[in-house]
Design a protein around this nucleic acid. Structure first.
Lengths: 242, 242
DNA sequence: ACCCCTATTCGACTTTCGACGAATCTCGCA
DNA sequence: TGCGAGATTCGTCGAAAGTCGAATAGGGGT
């Protein structure tokens, strides 16, 4: 898959050396003050000369960028007031194409990560990362690399788990689909049989086929699987952020 | 509206004074190491004698509580690996009814907050809170108060449908909650019996009680109901968290 | 002490579920 | 026309689920 917007190179103060007496400017944009502080400390321990600004809302971030355009790096949390999902990143990339953005997120869903990279982020750092790992990641990115969590296969499938399920679902026959939907309503075999106008034994046969095709072992697990697909329609972690 | 499970009083080392030479024990359960650290610092500056343990997963939290039952307070993030939404809180309140729990969450939806309180949390602290506000909140809660963000109207009603269900859920005994959560994982009675170390007949009795209390007629319908509570909590802001 | 209520446990019995085998039917293809 | 694959249908039988009654144990209240 192609990157849709190329991530800008991170070369603060073009023409100067990379490691010595630079005054890095970076902005931490996150609506959790405590986390902002922790992140600031983590970064401060990494770089000598660094000017870190904090933004708690997207408006603050924009204001900072307006007033001081030459920022070397933005650490952006996608879940900020005034921004939903990727809008913030998209807006950033559109308005300030020259400013590298690292997405710092509580969401570590591979699909979300890949989408961030597609939108031109210079890196993705999950909040679940430890301090040390986070530092090395940031320094790698500052060095020009593109860093993402190691276990993320950017070329891989969006969601292997649910894709697998979807594939299995697709093998269901029409009648089996009807039965599965009735299962998901909590109906008994007997009730399903009546509604479909067939015998209970037939329903049982359909249920058996469904269980086999979905790779589960009970009607309850089948219902759980079906529910996951329903919920899974929304890209990622509905019930994730807490 | 009544609190359906009373939050336990926070009076560590009963019989001793409240403010002097107490050794508070508390656990910070959050899957973001950086945030855990920041939260630890915030609390450490608040209390003199305090023993803070950290847990990055729900299993770690359980292990800590198992090994050291007399914990004075748990700061719990609802979005941890191994827990979905309120399950973690419900399970905590079922397994360790005597341990006060403060929910620390990035989600500041009033409905979610109220539901946390309904499930017996001793307080709710949004991650968007500043350090100072967070400290005063925690100290208030340690003092026995119930603290929630000021703008939350705890007296308001949730949507009638799920409120009904919530009320029914709250009548479940601790053991019944455990069984219900295992039902929601698609386990057989036999498997549940083994994990709980009781006979299968006992599990059946619990299931029967659950069905009656939830007003449903089969285990399948029970897990559907439970899933609705979990899912219904995040009505919109679907793709919000990034 | 007593009683009452609830939680938790369990065994016996009935109902439902689910696997297995098999029959019928449909449809596409040779 | 005949043939074969898959969908749909059904009966049977062992296993799982669920109901009922009951025993035990702890916790308030009087």
């Amino acid at each position: 898959m192609m990157r849709r917007m190329a991530a800008p190179p991170i070369n603060p103060r073009e023409g100067a050396g990379l490691t010595e007496a630079l005054q890095y400017r970076l902005v931490i944009a996150d609506d959790h003050p405590l986390f902002r502080g922790a992140l600031r400390e983590a970064v401060a321990g990494l770089l000598e000369q660094v000017d870190i600004a904090e933004a708690g809302t997207y408006d603050e971030l924009v204001e900072l960028l307006e007033r001081n355009g030459d920022v070397d790096l933005v650490l952006l949390d996608l879940a900020m007031p005034g921004v939903r999902g990727f809008s913030g990143l998209m807006y950033m990339r559109a308005q300030y194409p020259g400013v590298p953005v690292i997405v710092v997120s509580a969401n570590d869903d591979p699909a979300a990560i890949r989408r961030c990279m597609d939108f031109g982020a210079s890196g993705f750092i999950p909040k679940t990362l430890g301090v040390d790992a986070m530092r090395t990641a940031i320094s790698r990115i500052l060095g020009g690399d593109v860093w993402t969590p190691p276990d993320v296969d950017l070329t891989g499938e969006a969601d292997a788990a649910s894709a697998e399920l979807m594939a299995r679902m697709a093998t269901l026959t029409p009648q089996q689909v009807r039965v599965l939907m009735m299962l998901s309503e909590g109906l008994l075999n007997k009730q399903i049989a009546f509604q479909l106008g067939v015998s209970e034994a037939t329903v049982k046969a359909h249920v058996s086929a469904i269980l086999q095709k979905l790779g589960v072992e009970s009607r309850t697990q089948a219902v759980i699987a079906a529910a996951k697909i329903e919920a899974g329609q929304w890209p990622q972690g509905i019930a994730a952020e807490g």
